[in-house]
Structures are given as C-alpha cells and as structure tokens.
Deep mutational scan, measured.
Amino acid sequence: GIDPFTGEAIAKFNFNGDTQVEMSFRKGERITLLRQVDENWYEGRIPGTSRQGIFPITYVDVIKRPL
C-alpha cells in the first residue's frame, strides 16, 4: 500500500551513484522519498522496482516532502 509518510519527487537530472548505498536514476523518473538523511541527501526508492538508496537533494524536484 501507500505509506502516508513518504514523499515524492521527480528526477531533474541523471544521477549515477558511486557506491552501493547510492541509487542511480534517470531524468524524469518518479521517486518515492523515504526520509531526508541530512541537508544534502534523501533516501528513496523507485516504485515498482527493487532500487533503493540515497541521492543528492539537488538532483530532484520535490513534489511532497517525506514526514
């Protein structure tokens, strides 16, 4: 089901994660935001896939912030 505490964002740019914990994505992908890790990073996942990880806040347009 849908978790009411998650947020939502759209990727503004392609992001290629450097490490296992970073999640790569392509511009235009819809991302579920799980939490804000710190002032620069979100943790999120791509709905319908097993992809999950952290990524820079500046790479996405936030539609709804996670609670």
Rank of each mutant, 00 (worst) to 15 (best):
33 L>F: 04
17 G>L: 03
9 A>R: 02
22 E>A: 08
48 G>P: 05
57 I>V: 12
61 D>Y: 15
34 L>G: 04
38 D>S: 11
4 P>N: 13
10 I>K: 05
25 F>M: 04
5 F>S: 11
59 Y>K: 07
20 Q>A: 15
13 F>R: 12
19 T>F: 07
67 L>G: 15
19 T>I: 07
1 G>M: 12
23 M>D: 00
39 E>L: 09
63 I>Y: 07
26 R>E: 13
25 F>P: 01
48 G>S: 06
7 G>R: 09
58 T>M: 13
6 T>M: 10
58 T>A: 15
8 E>T: 11
61 D>I: 15
34 L>N: 04
20 Q>F: 11
38 D>R: 08
28 G>A: 04
65 R>S: 14
49 T>D: 05
27 K>W: 05
38 D>Y: 09
41 W>M: 08
24 S>N: 07
50 S>I: 10
25 F>T: 01
65 R>C: 15
53 G>R: 00
6 T>H: 14
60 V>I: 09
27 K>C: 08
16 N>C: 15
56 P>D: 04
3 D>T: 11
47 P>Y: 09
24 S>E: 04
47 P>Q: 11
44 G>I: 01
46 I>L: 03
1 G>Y: 08
57 I>L: 09
34 L>C: 08
29 E>R: 02
41 W>Y: 12
54 I>V: 10
8 E>G: 05
64 K>N: 08
59 Y>H: 12
13 F>N: 08
9 A>H: 02
35 R>E: 04
28 G>L: 03
10 I>M: 07
39 E>W: 08
5 F>G: 13
28 G>V: 01
49 T>Y: 03
8 E>A: 09
66 P>N: 07
32 T>W: 08
50 S>W: 08
26 R>T: 12
25 F>C: 02
43 E>Y: 15
10 I>N: 03
32 T>I: 14
35 R>I: 05
19 T>Q: 10
14 N>P: 07
63 I>H: 06
30 R>W: 09
55 F>A: 00
12 K>M: 09
62 V>G: 03
61 D>V: 15
5 F>P: 10
46 I>K: 02
21 V>Y: 14
15 F>K: 01
37 V>N: 02
7 G>Q: 09
49 T>Q: 05
46 I>H: 02
30 R>P: 05
54 I>R: 09
42 Y>N: 01
29 E>N: 02
11 A>D: 00
2 I>C: 15
41 W>K: 05
54 I>M: 09
2 I>E: 15
20 Q>S: 15
36 Q>H: 07
27 K>G: 05
14 N>M: 06
21 V>F: 14
28 G>R: 03
63 I>A: 05
57 I>Y: 05
16 N>K: 11
8 E>I: 14
43 E>G: 03
8 E>D: 09
11 A>N: 00
62 V>T: 07
42 Y>E: 01
65 R>P: 15
36 Q>G: 04
54 I>N: 05
47 P>R: 09
64 K>P: 06
18 D>S: 14
42 Y>W: 15
13 F>H: 10
52 Q>K: 11
19 T>G: 12
35 R>P: 01
66 P>S: 07
24 S>L: 02
61 D>F: 15
39 E>F: 09
62 V>M: 07
